[in-house]
């Protein structure tokens, strides 16, 4: 069995995804379906996980729960294997591995394979916690050298769902733009999960969504890190973000921390997005320059 992986997001892919998905789907789901469609003629079967929760008391967004069904709708007749957790066994446990993938492998090999995958997952996340971006971490995992990072430069926080932050097509190259202006960019993946959890204690009531927790926790940590400002990228029509966005906005206002909230949309209004980011960076730079004088 050979895994086939889709390439980077592009205009054609997005258009294909938008065309096949239901109206209510958010932009990232449309992108996901676009990726599936580009693979349609290159693979025999799709493997899609059903993510419900990864922690005991919080949930991944419901769109993820429906991802296998939406994929089925999009790819048509092609067979679909769903990787899902069963009662009393987590997604990563050997019992959860779908039967279609188990064929021809002993229980021992399956267990070993899972352990290897988990180890790679942890190594990858350790690299992200050193401030690397996913593409850079992949390079390092493949044997490349880690990129040099300036330690004492100006820093900006970038928060949002990982699929918005790390897809340069979706966010119109926001990360590159910030780097070009000489900012080091810190994202939620920079912080160890335990630190993020500690930050959530101040909430009167726990947040329902795992991703919202990570965004809010990372936001608080970024404030403590004394970054110059924070950019919040959210996807158009994202339900959980309507709430998290408001929480973050209020907190930023109370702290007097510059915050730019950008909503990503399929209409790719690049000019508008770039104008806002440029104006935000000017604001940070002028603030620094004139308050030093």
């Amino acid at each position: 069995m050979t895994p086939v992986i889709s390439g980077p997001t592009g205009k054609e892919l997005l258009n294909a995804g938008v065309k096949t998905s239901v109206d209510e789907a958010c932009l990232p789901v449309k992108v996901f379906l676009g990726h599936c469609l580009t693979l349609r003629n290159r693979c025999d079967c799709f493997l899609v996980p059903r993510l419900v929760n990864i922690n005991r008391k919080d949930y991944i967004c419901p769109k993820f729960m429906g991802l296998p069904e939406m994929t089925k709708q999009a790819v048509g007749k092609q067979p679909l294997v769903i990787w899902k957790s069963e009662k009393n066994c987590a997604l990563g446990s050997p019992q959860a591995v779908p039967a279609a993938l188990r064929q021809g492998f002993s229980a021992r090999r399956i267990k070993k394979g899972l352990q290897k995958a988990e180890a790679a997952f942890h190594t990858y996340h350790r690299l992200l916690q050193q401030g690397l971006f996913p593409a850079e971490a992949e390079q390092v995992l493949g044997g490349g050298a880690p990129p040099a990072r300036e330690k004492n430069g100006r820093r900006i926080g970038l928060i949002g769902h990982p699929y918005c932050l790390y897809d340069p097509f979706l966010n119109l190259g926001t990360v590159n733009l910030l780097h070009r202006y000489g900012f080091a960019v810190l994202t939620p993946e920079y912080f160890p999960p335990r630190q993020i959890e500690d930050e959530l204690q101040i909430l009167a009531k726990p947040l329902f969504w795992t991703m919202s927790q990570r965004i809010f926790g990372a936001f608080r940590l970024l404030c403590k890190e004394k970054v110059d400002g924070i950019v919040y990228l959210s996807a158009f029509a994202c339900g959980p973000e309507a709430l998290t966005g408001e929480l973050v906005k209020r907190e930023a206002k109370a702290l007097g921390l510059p915050l730019l909230h950008l909503v990503l949309d399929e209409h790719s209004g690049e000019a508008g997005l770039v104008t806002r980011i440029e104006a935000f960076i000017d604001l940070l730079q002028r603030k620094r320059r004139f308050s030093c004088v």
Binding site: G272, T275, D282, L283, R286
Partner: peptide, 13 residues
């Protein structure tokens, strides 16, 4: 504030 822009808003589409 104090002669420096601290926040802005812009209309969407």
């Amino acid at each position: 504030e104090n002669g420096v822009a601290v926040d802005f808003g812009m209309n969407t589409v």
